[in-house]
């Protein structure tokens, strides 16, 4: 084995070991638990049961699942709308400015997202910064609070996840061959037409990747709705936590976890299929 091969072997086996111990094994444990029965004093009773799944086929759980999907989808859309123009402009800038702006996108990442959510509380509360500025400008007469509303939840989620959208979009826009756009213009396409027929299809892989990277974590960020939304909306994450800790119904919690995992796998599969199709389409054209 030469140095290169050994490095490859070490890095790949390291990753496989890591993923098996911290990903696959707990996943299998969860799946196994979901098929057991609840036991009041021993957490689980080691006999096969579908009770966990039967408990979650319930309007309340479906409503919670729907709530989570709605918040995650809304956040993804907001991130896309905010990040696309930004990433587009960024990719067309001078290298010097690009570096500075990319750095500014990354810097908030150095702080824990929980801490950043606390900072948002200071912005949005009744005597917070936003309210004070609005009163000072004379836009509102009395202090206004944005806390504990759905809008606050969207602000929090979008703020936290925006960089995950910007980065893939940026790299997609940067890869566009300027000649394509020039060609479209030469052939008489207006700005809108160029955008929808050339730029948008070419950046589609970036859009899909960005949406995945925002949507999936958004489903799990239960502390944001808890802190900014006032804990009035249960998300799948809260539901799972409550089943394990409060109701001590591990099979039901595990079953909900399995459902969530399957949902995410389905989305990743769709992502893979659409990516494959895009690649194929790209190859045909060239």
């Amino acid at each position: 084995m030469n140095m290169h091969n050994r490095f490859r072997f070490l890095s790949i086996s390291g990753a496989i070991l890591w993923l098996s111990v911290f990903g696959l094994f707990p996943g299998l444990l969860m799946m196994g638990t979901s098929f057991l029965a609840r036991h009041e004093a021993h957490l689980v009773d080691f006999r096969f049961s579908l009770e966990g799944y039967r408990t979650i086929i319930d309007p309340a759980f479906l409503k919670i699942l729907w709530n989570s999907l709605y918040l995650a989808a809304g956040t993804t859309l907001l991130c896309l709308l905010a990040a696309y123009p930004f990433a587009y402009t960024l990719a067309r800038m001078e290298t010097r400015w690009k570096k500075v702006l990319l750095m500014l996108v990354m810097i908030p990442f150095w702080t824990n997202s929980l801490v950043r959510t606390y900072a948002l509380v200071f912005m949005l509360k009744t005597r917070g910064i936003v309210s004070t500025i609005l009163v000072w400008l004379g836009i509102t007469a009395k202090p206004v609070s944005f806390m504990y509303t759905e809008a606050a939840v969207f602000i929090g989620l979008t703020y936290t996840l925006l960089p995950f959208m910007i980065l893939p979009l940026y790299s997609a826009v940067e890869k566009i061959d300027g000649k394509m756009i020039e060609a479209a213009r030469d052939l008489g396409a207006g700005s809108w037409r160029t955008f929808f027929h050339v730029t948008l299809p070419l950046t589609m892989p970036g859009i899909v990747a960005g949406c995945m990277m925002v949507f999936l974590p958004a489903l799990g960020m239960f502390f944001v709705p808890d802190m900014l939304g006032g804990g009035k909306h249960l998300l799948v994450g809260n539901f799972i936590k409550n089943q394990f800790l409060v109701a001590r119904d591990w099979p039901t919690g595990a079953a909900a976890g399995v459902v969530l995992t399957l949902l995410m796998l389905a989305l990743i599969y769709v992502h893979g299929v659409s990516k494959g199709r895009l690649n194929k389409a790209g190859k045909k054209k060239s």
């Binding site: 409550n242 089943q243 109701a247």
Partner: peptide, 13 residues
């Protein structure tokens, strides 16, 4: 507790 939990989920959902 499981009954409490069921109502709690309904209340919040």
């Amino acid at each position: 507790i499981t009954l409490y939990e069921k109502y709690w989920n309904k209340l919040k959902a």
